[in-house]
Computed example of a mutant assay.
Amino acid sequence: MDSYLGSYATLGLLLVAAVLVFVGAFSANRLLSPSSPAEPAGKREAYECGVDPVGGDWAQAQIRYYVYAYLYVLFAVESVFLFPWAVIFDRPGFGMTTVVEMAIFVAVLALGILYAWRKRILRWT
């Protein structure tokens, strides 16, 4: 029974320590940060490489850039999974299991590539 309550005491002490660190950090920020009630003109204005901001703050991005980013992430994840598979492929006991798992994985990726190809996403023009 003592170890049961002891684990709750440990959790409670951890929570108290976390709250103290949180309050201490915000208090230190409040005490140590400089405060200037009169900010210079333009201090909160957006700064972009020395060029004055022109126009509104809303910009439209084309969806094809997101598709390219998604395809890049898809192939990056594929390479992350293919490398460990290639490392353990020839170890005893992993042969057929790893072949089947990787066949399923590559088949799902192939379906994604086929879909992108059919929708003409992978064209450069």
Rank of each mutant, 00 (worst) to 15 (best):
Q62C: 00
Y115K: 14
T125S: 15
G56W: 04
P92F: 00
A59G: 03
A46S: 13
S33A: 11
I88W: 12
P34E: 12
P37M: 15
V87M: 04
A69C: 09
F26C: 02
G95E: 14
R30L: 08
L14Q: 12
L111E: 02
Y47M: 01
D2I: 13
F75N: 07
R44S: 14
F75I: 10
Y68K: 09
A59L: 10
G56V: 01
V51R: 02
A41K: 15
A41T: 14
C49N: 15
P34A: 08
L109N: 15
A107T: 08
L82Y: 13
Y72H: 10
G42K: 00
T98C: 05
L31W: 05
R30M: 04
K119H: 12
L109V: 04
P40E: 09
A28D: 01
A69K: 14
S7A: 12
R91V: 00
A25C: 03
Y72K: 10
T97I: 10
I63H: 13
W117G: 08
M96D: 05
S27R: 08
M1Q: 06
V73Q: 09
S79D: 11
V100K: 03
V21L: 14
S3I: 11
N29R: 12
A86P: 00
P34T: 14
V106M: 05
Q60T: 15
F81C: 12
Y70S: 01
A116W: 00
V106T: 04
K43M: 12
W117A: 08
K43G: 01
A107I: 07
A61N: 13
V77I: 13
Y72W: 10
L111A: 06
G50K: 02
K119F: 02
L109C: 10
I113L: 12
I88D: 10
P34Y: 04
R44E: 04
R123W: 05
L122K: 08
R44I: 03
L111I: 09
W124L: 14
A61M: 11
T98Q: 03
Y47L: 11
V106I: 14
Y70V: 06
Y4H: 08
S35G: 15
A116P: 00
W58D: 02
A107R: 04
T125V: 01
C49S: 06
A110P: 01
Y8V: 03
G56K: 06
G56H: 01
P53Q: 10
V54A: 01
L109R: 05
G56I: 02
A116G: 00
W117K: 10
R64N: 07
L74G: 03
F94M: 04
E39Q: 15
Y8F: 15
V77W: 07
G42Y: 02
W85R: 12
G12P: 01
A18P: 00
F26N: 10
V80H: 02
F94H: 07
V106F: 03
G95L: 03
T125N: 12
T98F: 01
F94Q: 01
Y115C: 13
I113V: 07
A17K: 08
Y8G: 06
A25T: 06
L31Q: 12
S33W: 03
W58K: 13
Y4E: 09
D57M: 03
F26G: 00
E39A: 15
W124V: 13
E48M: 00
E45T: 07
W117Y: 14
V23C: 06
